[in-house]
Simulated assay, not measured.
Amino acid sequence: MSTTNKESLLPLNPMHLPELPSWFPIAWGWWASVGGTLLCLLTLWLAYRWNKKRLAPKKAALRLIQAGGKPAEAFELLRQAALCYYPREEVAKLTGKEWYAFLDTQVKSPLFLDNYELWQVALYSKEPLINASELVSHCSQWVDEALPPKRRRAKVG
């Protein structure tokens, strides 16, 4: 008994393949990755805003000091900038040599106490000074180096 090849095949239905897996809903790991990325971006954005807000008085003081040309105006702007960053109770009461000493303790190289007499002439004389631009640059340098204050600083007063 010989059977042909056609007769030996069983009558089977055609093969049905399952549907391809969809992208949605995605696995929890992908949600965690997206959430972590968003959290990192939010943290970076908040840090940028905080730093921008923290440096705003310094940038404004530098811009105004460099725009003006008189040492008395620059010195007043320096005092206002210092009041933005240092405790008012500590800074507002300082005058004269105590104020200059405070300024010098906040920077690496002293700029003000060594030039005390020159600053007194610049602040209280109506005559223009020859080296007024040097005094204005000292104010600009102090604002640039001392603000915002470092965590560890010397106390004066």
Rank of each mutant, 00 (worst) to 15 (best):
S2H: 15
T4D: 13
S8G: 10
P11Y: 12
L12S: 09
N13T: 13
M15C: 14
H16R: 12
H16K: 15
P18I: 06
E19H: 11
E19Q: 09
E19W: 08
I26S: 14
A27M: 08
W28P: 02
V34T: 02
G35T: 00
G35K: 02
G35P: 01
G36N: 04
T37F: 05
T37H: 07
T37I: 10
T37P: 06
L38Q: 02
L38K: 03
L39Y: 02
C40W: 08
C40D: 06
L41I: 01
L42T: 06
L46E: 07
K52Q: 12
K52N: 03
K53A: 09
K53I: 08
R54S: 01
L55C: 07
L55Q: 08
A56E: 05
L62Q: 00
I65V: 00
Q66N: 12
K70L: 15
K70Q: 11
K70E: 12
A72W: 04
R79G: 06
A82H: 05
L83P: 04
E89I: 15
E89V: 15
E90N: 06
A92P: 09
L94H: 03
T95K: 15
K97S: 14
W99Q: 04
Y100T: 07
D104I: 06
K108C: 12
S109M: 11
L111T: 00
F112N: 03
F112H: 01
L113V: 08
D114M: 12
D114I: 09
Y116D: 09
E117A: 13
E117V: 13
L118S: 07
W119Y: 05
A122C: 03
Y124I: 10
S125M: 00
E127Q: 13
E127Y: 11
P128Q: 00
P128N: 03
I130T: 14
I130S: 13
S133V: 04
S133A: 10
V136I: 03
S137H: 07
H138L: 07
H138W: 08
D144N: 09
D144P: 12
A146G: 04
L147G: 04
R152D: 15
G157F: 05
